[in-house]
């Protein structure tokens, strides 16, 4: 293969301007994924609906955040986008081409993952430098000296000191390991990075370092990103647009800034309130979510959020809401627009 990737030049002259260039690099249309859980002997198997008719897109140079609790299907979406999992229905296109028709090697070069726990995704017997060179070897990019050069440059770019290049993962801190994982993901100059909770295992001060690094790299390289997190505070920092998932559905999506200022879905509001800011005057927020837990094997009828919703009416129990456009955001809630002022929106 040729060496298009060897200069760390931005793909676009001005990555920020790129946001305005609304061509989707990655698009998912109506994807669904259901798993069958075996109930064991003599028991009925049950169905786990992880993702239910989700549509998403990521524009070039842009970050699309996905936020939601565990079990909401956000990691399944990540696996589907990475081609690690096949959706039961729906289609994913990468730059207009269906990913089902893209050869596996090419897909893995163009879409790269960064996972939560960098320790379990790094080979403990490979040095940092070898780790970053490895994908270049696998994809036969360039020759040995150029691979070495590129790996060193990347490691330098993610802020690892030269003396650590020959270290092994167990000699590094969590933040440094995540830096290695990011360098490795960037080695093949992918079109899109899929980051699944990349900072949840890190300390706050280190999380800030990694979030800043990710933003800097995106500005410099213009790579598009899907950024998955359960923390809206983190999402707000990195994402241009955000999709809020609940029980396999995108219940609210829109531009991050607007969505944070005017969250319309009751679930988005609860998520936003549950971000504990270090303000000693506030005390614990009252979420009004009730005692029931979301269970993807037993999805409630009507609006799937209604058992936990403080605003629910009889309509919510009977019919599933269609997405509605409000203030430029798409919201799946019967009551969207009529919830009254958000408690948080006034603090500012």
């Amino acid at each position: 293969m040729a060496l298009p990737a060897f200069t760390l030049k931005p793909k676009h002259d001005s990555p920020r301007k790129q946001v305005c260039d609304m061509t989707a690099i990655l698009e998912a249309k109506g994807i669904s994924r259901t798993y069958t859980l075996s109930g064991g002997m003599m028991k009925k198997s049950s169905k786990l609906q992880a993702v239910r008719d989700v549509s998403l897109y990521v524009n070039r140079g842009e970050t699309c955040g996905i936020v939601g609790e565990s079990g909401c299907g956000k990691s399944t979406v990540a696996r589907i986008l990475l081609g690690l999992e096949q959706p039961d229905a729906g289609q994913i296109t990468l730059d207009g081409q269906a990913i089902a028709s893209i050869p596996r090697a090419e897909l893995s070069r163009r879409v790269q993952p960064v996972f939560q726990d960098p320790y379990s995704t790094l080979n403990p017997r490979r040095s940092i430098l070898e780790t970053v060179i490895h994908p270049l070897n696998v994809h036969k990019v360039g020759d040995a000296p150029s691979r070495d050069r590129r790996a060193r440059k990347l490691l330098d770019q993610v802020g690892l000191p030269k003396r650590s290049f020959h270290a092994f993962p167990n000699q590094l801190s969590g933040g440094q390991r995540q830096r290695v994982a990011i360098a490795r993901a960037l080695a093949l100059d992918p079109d899109i990075l899929v980051c699944d909770e990349p900072t949840s295992a890190l300390d706050v001060s280190i999380q800030a370092q990694i979030l800043n690094l990710i933003q800097d790299l995106q500005r410099d390289l213009g790579v598009a990103m899907v950024f998955i997190s359960h923390n809206l505070g983190v999402i707000e920092h990195v994402a241009d647009r955000v999709a809020v998932m609940y029980l396999g559905r995108v219940v609210e999506t829109g531009e991050t800034r607007k969505l944070m200022q005017r969250p319309e879905h009751p679930y988005t509001r609860a998520l936003l309130e549950s971000v504990l800011t270090p303000d000693p005057e506030l005390g614990l927020p009252d979420l009004d979510l009730g005692r029931s837990f979301p269970d993807p094997t037993n999805i409630p009828s009507g609006c799937s959020f209604h058992p936990r919703c403080a605003f629910r009416t009889s309509v919510c129990e009977d019919s599933a809401p269609e997405p509605r456009q409000i203030h430029g955001a798409s919201v799946e809630c019967h009551l969207a627009g009529n919830l009254g002022e958000n408690r948080l929106a006034t603090v500012d």
């Binding site: 706050v204 999380q207 800030a208 370092q209 505070g233 707000e236 920092h237 800034r257 270090p278 500012d348």
Partner: peptide, 25 residues
């Protein structure tokens, strides 16, 4: 103080402020 500065807090991003990371380990 630096720990507080390094926390991503919703609303802070409206100022497009970068997170204040603590350098080093």
């Amino acid at each position: 103080a630096r720990l507080l500065d390094s926390m991503p807090i919703p609303g802070m991003m409206r100022l497009r402020r970068k997170l204040q990371a603590i350098p080093g380990t």
